[in-house]
Amino acid sequence: MEEQVMEILAIGDEEIQKICLGTYCPKNCGASYKLGKMVLEKMDVVTVKKTEGSNFSVVAEPLPGPPVIERPLDKTVGQDLLFGKVWKWLQDDGEQVSSIGLYGMGGVGKTTLLTRINNELLKTRLELDAVI
């Protein structure tokens, strides 16, 4: 079908070149009529194919994004013990931890700890449903 459309477009370009100067009337009315008739027939075939065929509104889905996105983090000091505890809970399948929450005063390193955990998840293949 694509080859036929390309042929029709090529014929159409030739017909445009044959148009009388300034009057926009074709020199060969019969050829112009045949070309218009071919285009109409092809449009009917395409309409039938679209109604018979599957729904092609979505041809390809975009790839899902990565489960974890790396965040910039400076070197941390004094969080190895807390990181070890939280990381152990994440890796332990026996306890089946469904969620982990961190709380504390402002400035104690909650966000930094979570950023470190986030970046560590990139290096390992833990099966987590969601990382927020």
Rank of each mutant, 00 (worst) to 15 (best):
Lys75Arg: 13
Lys85Asn: 11
Ser99Val: 07
Leu81Val: 08
Val48Thr: 13
Gly94Tyr: 06
Ala60Met: 13
Phe83Met: 01
Leu73Ala: 08
Phe83Thr: 00
Glu95Gln: 09
Lys88His: 08
Lys85Leu: 12
Leu102Trp: 05
Glu95Trp: 07
Trp89Tyr: 10
Glu41Tyr: 05
Glu52Ala: 13
Val59Ile: 11
Leu73Thr: 03
Trp87Asp: 00
Pro62Glu: 05
Ser54Leu: 07
Val77Leu: 08
Glu70Leu: 15
Val108Ala: 06
Asp92Ile: 00
Leu90His: 01
Asp93Tyr: 01
Met43His: 10
Glu61Cys: 08
Gln79His: 06
Gln96Val: 05
Tyr103Lys: 10
Leu73Trp: 01
Asp93Thr: 04
Thr47Ala: 14
Ser54Asp: 14
Leu81Thr: 08
Val39Ser: 02
Gly84Asn: 06
Thr51Gly: 11
Gln79Lys: 03
Phe56Asn: 11
Gly84Phe: 00
Gly94Val: 11
Gly104Met: 03
Trp87Ser: 01
Gly84Arg: 04
Phe83Cys: 00
Glu61Phe: 09
Asp92Met: 01
Leu81Asp: 14
Val58Lys: 10
Thr47Cys: 12
Leu82Met: 08
Asp92Pro: 00
Lys85Ile: 08
Ser54His: 14
Lys50Gly: 08
Lys49Asp: 10
Leu63Asp: 13
Lys49Arg: 11
Leu40Cys: 11
Asp74Cys: 09
Val97Glu: 03
Lys88Ser: 11
Gly53His: 05
Gly84Pro: 00
Gly104Lys: 02
Met43Phe: 11
Arg71Gly: 06
Lys42Gln: 05
Gly106Gln: 11
Leu73His: 02
Lys50Glu: 15
Thr76Phe: 03
Lys49Gly: 04
Pro62Thr: 09
Lys49Ile: 04
Thr51Ile: 15
Pro62Val: 10
Asp80Phe: 01
Phe56Gly: 10
Gly107Cys: 02
Val48Tyr: 11
Ile69Lys: 15
Ile69Ala: 15
Val108Arg: 13
Met105Arg: 15
Pro72Arg: 04
Met38Phe: 05
Ser57Trp: 12
Pro66Ala: 14
Glu52Lys: 15
Val45Ser: 10
Ser98His: 04
Val108Asn: 07
Gly104Tyr: 02
Val48Ser: 12
Val97Pro: 02
Gly84Trp: 00
Val58Ala: 13
Asp92Gln: 01
Glu52Leu: 15
Asp80His: 04
Gly94Ala: 12
Gln91Trp: 00
Met38Trp: 08
Gly104Ser: 04
Val46His: 06
Glu95Met: 09
Ser98Val: 03
Arg71Cys: 09
Gly104Gln: 03
Glu61Tyr: 09
Val46Arg: 06
Val58Ser: 06
Pro66Arg: 10
Ser98Asn: 03
Trp89Gln: 06
Pro66Thr: 15
Asp92Asn: 06
Phe83Gln: 00
Leu73Ser: 04
Asp93Ala: 06
Gly104Arg: 01
Pro62Tyr: 04
Gly94Thr: 13
Asp74Gln: 13
Leu63His: 09
Glu95Cys: 10
